[in-house]
Design a protein around this nucleic acid. Structure first.
Lengths: 294, 294
DNA sequence: TATCACGATACAAAAAAGGTATTAAGGATG
DNA sequence: CATCCTTAATACCTTTTTTGTATCGTGATA
């Protein structure tokens, strides 16, 4: 059976055209090298060298095999490098799920920093509704996810990314846009658009408890799973919504944002499967741990 | 040091996800296979498998290395096939020199037959003046050559390709074109264009001896190394020339061909270095030996 | 809790590779 | 033309590596 060692022996002999000198270079003596070359020729079923009294030279078959052997050897060392890179998380694949809120500042910042540090990692970014994120991380479908701080964190690692106060999103032509700061009392009778409780309990809960704080039950007239839709529906004049401030950097046509008195805030975190085998994940966590400045 | 055997072991284990069954497939027992996998992991500096109680599965690094290892193994077997093909002359390079006379029927027939039989051989065809051919075959610059039958054939193999009678090439507007067959007496006083003796002694000698047969010394007014030029100069009306019939199948503008009484003939042969190491050469000789029908 | 299936480990046996000494063969040299 | 020199090949022994047998440790499963 052919052997990597034999390929290296062969290449060395081919380059020096001299078995004895090749043996020196290979830190061995001449006879075993001769023997290995013969074994290789036998295994290939072709003679690779012409033996001259002053050395050896390649036959046409040897020339052909020399090229192939060089490629094989360099491919092998490349493969070794690849596997090391992947094992150390310098290369590989990483899938990250995130909720829409993260799309405008957290995910861009995070991916830019990470991709700069690890250009050989292929990132797969996917936006899904918040309630999916934890499930799919635990199921191993995502290596990590950017989401609101969850209640249950079993089996996952977690790191806080940022906190964002909620503010009021209202249609541009709404009378309340006249005021620069609003309180619960201002909006007690207003219709609200919100995410269903099972999609993003933290967000829906924040609306609920903020309203209770001001002694009213929020009139939620529309529920929608997609966060993007909430803002679009506000723009259509169908109601108000509580939106984290990190979204207000973006211009949404037809929507105004106003700060809230005693505004509740939500916390954004990155989670990941604790028992993940993907070495890239550790690099991502390190990258996030070393600071993100959102 | 990493070893082909280890790659095969690794690929088998990766595919079966089971060390014991892989060992069966590989016709060995489980412990040495386990050990080789460990050695491979150690050599690579990365763990390739996760050990489960019901078998093993690839780590991300293992997945990466699995792809690379498959490529390496198939590249290796391709390389082995290549070297065998080259050794048997089924693939490789073959350089053939030829004189212009062969360009119009011998070389096309020969190359078509050979290339059809051996599509993986790269043919290098080069036309040079006749006197160069033998030298360059002996020097190893050409594997073979198509030329006129030489005097000296030391160190070369030779096979006859065809014989061609010489005929007269004369300008279209020459008075002798009226006659359909010519003899030496008709051309005794005509000016001739011929190749110098040192370029193609056989051709020049044929003109000489044919003239002597009819009792005259040919009046060679122009000599030119390139055979193509001879025909061009005839077309210009500068003189007559003796041309082998195998060239008369081609239309040369301004030139008429007429058969000669008692025409001398020349023999075309293929020669090759007897001690050539190129296995393709043997296939060429076989191909020519089995008949060419020119 | 006992059993089962699997991979890991220990150690002896076998095979392979390497080293030393020598031979054989082809040029170069006197 | 004999001799020497260089180089690869061969013979034989030693060392290293690989394999096989027997056994162990460990999670899952019933």
């Amino acid at each position: 059976m052919i052997d990597i060692k034999q390929l290296q022996y062969f290449v060395t002999v081919a380059e020096l055209q001299h078995v004895g000198r090749a043996a020196e270079v290979l830190n061995m003596t001449q006879p075993p090298l001769s023997r290995q070359i013969h074994l290789l020729e036998e295994a290939l079923g072709a003679s690779l060298f012409v033996r001259h009294p002053k050395g050896v030279s390649l036959t046409p078959a040897g020339e052909c095999f020399y090229k192939d052997a060089q490629h094989l050897l360099s491919s092998l060392s490349q493969a070794c490098q690849n596997v090391r890179d992947v094992a150390q998380g310098k290369a590989g694949k990483l899938s990250i799920g995130f909720m829409m809120h993260a799309a405008y500042s957290i995910i861009p910042k995070l991916t830019k920093k990470f991709m700069t540090a690890y250009p050989d990692v292929a990132l797969h970014l996917q936006e899904v509704i918040p309630s999916e994120l934890m499930k799919r991380v635990q199921a191993g479908e995502f290596d990590a996810a950017v989401m609101l701080h969850p209640q249950q964190i079993q089996g996952v690692g977690l790191i806080k990314l940022c906190e964002s106060a909620l503010c009021l999103a209202l249609p541009l032509d709404h009378p309340l846009t006249q005021k620069s700061k609003l309180s619960g009392d201002d909006v007690a009778l207003e219709p609200f658009i919100a995410t269903p409780h099972n999609v993003a309990p933290e967000l829906r809960g924040a609306l609920q408890s903020y309203a209770h704080q001001y002694g009213f039950e929020p009139k939620v007239i529309l529920e929608t799973q997609l966060q993007q839709s909430i803002i679009n529906l506000v723009a259509e004049g169908l109601g108000l919504a509580l939106i984290p401030e990190i979204l207000t950097k973006v211009q949404f046509p037809g929507v105004a944002f106003r700060p809230l008195q005693n505004a509740p805030s939500v916390e954004y975190v990155m989670i990941w499967r604790q028992d993940s085998l993907n070495p890239v994940l550790s690099r991502l966590v390190e990258s996030v741990e070393s600071g993100l400045e959102i």
